[in-house]
């Protein structure tokens, strides 16, 4: 297994009150596999993804284990953790404008990891950067390298962020609502590129999304999260028809679709 999360629990205590964010979460992603993680805001999806890179507050109490490519992350030494973060797994966020420094050129942001973390020369890093921009379907990559984030559209920037995530040649991509802010047509374009890259490189992808239709259509397997727990695991194709858990069914019934009205009370619950 490329990613193996076993019985992960995470509790954060603020002002003497404990909040259990994750409760015995277990999931796995194999190489070459696209796995969805769905659920509502606050269910713990992002916390799970961030924990894979050991990105959580130092005050958090964490139990269980996370293995990325054979390395136990939670007990990893500083050097091991550095290696996991720089070349094993990469995290892509929803908002590319927040991920890129607005006053630095695209080329600098793109090659930063290669030059400053992996010690590649600037010329080699620039060449690798150009190649990656072409790989994510950006035309005139030389020109884009010299531009600033505000000069590019959201779809273009998200492709830059994906390219930047690939610079360390990771084996695992953690995509946290990476296409949620894009138009449906642009989303399709970015996902087609991601699928190609994923197949060529045998990447494992953990796709976090609130879009259940997307999870069903794009993922091999889907985990459903609710209040810090994985309540159900399904094959992507079975998500809409094979759900057993009551929460999953309730969630699915709220999904709007053309030509069907959800049976929901307008009152807040």
């Amino acid at each position: 297994m490329l990613l193996d999360i076993d019985n992960l629990s995470l509790t954060i205590t603020t002002n003497g009150i404990s909040h259990q964010i994750l409760d015995k979460v277990s999931l796995s992603v194999d190489a070459g596999e696209v796995v969805g993680l769905v659920g509502e805001s606050g269910s713990g999806k992002s916390t799970t993804a961030r924990a894979v890179l050991k990105l959580y507050p130092e005050t958090a109490a964490v139990g269980g284990s996370i293995t990325v490519g054979g390395t136990e992350v939670l007990s990893a030494s500083k050097d091991e953790l550095h290696r996991v973060r720089s070349s094993e797994a990469a995290l892509i966020h929803q908002d590319p404008r927040a991920a890129l420094n607005p006053v630095r050129r695209i080329g600098d942001s793109l090659t930063e990891r290669l030059v400053h973390v992996l010690g590649v020369s600037r010329a080699d890093a620039a060449a690798a950067g150009l190649e990656l921009l072409a790989a994510v379907g950006i035309r005139q990559p030389e020109e884009r390298m010299r531009q600033y984030p505000h000069e590019l559209s959201g779809g273009m920037l998200q492709r830059v962020v994906i390219a930047a995530a690939l610079t360390g040649q990771p084996k695992l991509l953690l995509a946290d609502e990476a296409t949620s802010a894009l138009d449906v047509t642009t989303q399709a374009e970015v996902l087609a590129i991601l699928r190609d890259l994923q197949e060529q490189r045998g990447l494992g992808v953990l796709l976090i999304t609130h879009d259940l239709h997307l999870a069903a259509a794009y993922c091999d397997r889907v985990y459903v999260m609710y209040r810090g727990q994985i309540v159900e695991e399904l094959r992507g194709n079975d998500l809409f028809h094979g759900a057993q858990h009551e929460y999953t069914r309730r969630l699915l019934s709220a999904v709007p679709a053309i030509g069907h009205l959800p049976k929901t009370e307008s009152r807040a619950s």
Partner: peptide, 8 residues
């Protein structure tokens, strides 16, 4: 979220 969206 979808369930809240449906309520609104």
């Amino acid at each position: 979220d979808v369930s809240v969206q449906a309520q609104i």
